[in-house]
Amino acid sequence: MSWWQEEYGYRDDWFRSDPVLGDHTPSPDAILIGGPVVAVSRRGPIGVEWWAREWVSVLEAMGHGPRLERGRRYARNGSAHDLEIDYGRVFARVSGSHYTPYRTALTFQVFPDEAWSRALTALASQAIYGAKLLAGEMPADIEAVFQDLGLSLFPRSSRDVEFYCSCLDYEEPCKHAAALYYLLAEQLDADPLTLFHLHGRSREQVLAALHTHRGVAAAEVPGDGYRGAPDAAPLDADFGAFWRGGRGGIDTDDGALPAVELPGSDGAALRKLYELVADAARRRFGGDG
């Protein structure tokens, strides 16, 4: 590090214990994207789907033109890397003029559990929400659902999103934070449920909750006695049966089933792999069925 950087510049270790920008152990559900993250859009606006555009419009209402422009540039040139998307917080390293990349973060409101419970119940009450979300789309009126509960799904003001950066720029948002915000827009393009994650629920949790809450409503639907197989089956005290089984097995004389079909050009590429594996298995374990 050159002397002037040391004297007047930025030191990364000053931020190591910062509550927002400091080193964190990401939670197990965090979405981690290693290496440089480059925006797909090369020119013009960033973010394609309506919810990503909605997301971006908030930023563009809050920030200054030139900085945002620079933010977009940073988003496109791979300056940002090692993203962590976690509950309430998005963190990344953004290379700037300094030797060591800056630490940049955006924080969001994590909704309390009770609020989530009500929100998810509301979402479960109509299949359309789950359907669209599973299909990779943000349902059109989703914001209303949260607004009815006094929650803001999209950030609308500086209360909803805060920008942090270890760079020396005092404007909010600085170009690094803006870059991170834009990259999130594209992440939202790919998976709208990221927005839920920012507010405290991972994708699995949302889907599981939708399922459970729907199951509540489903109790009224006559089930005809078909119950799903539970994932757990407690060991029972029928000791006679405890050791039994294992023999009888499967009828191996059914005749070989045809190999699975491999569609498309990908299939052709995989063909070789399949042959190789079959050969290896034959050699190691013996051939026929």
């Binding site: 639907v221 119950r227 799903g228 197989a229």
Partner: peptide, 13 residues
């Protein structure tokens, strides 16, 4: 209907 009526991750039918 049967699908909505079932619980758990797997449905046996």
């Amino acid at each position: 209907e049967v699908v909505w009526g079932s619980t758990g991750r797997t449905l046996t039918y």
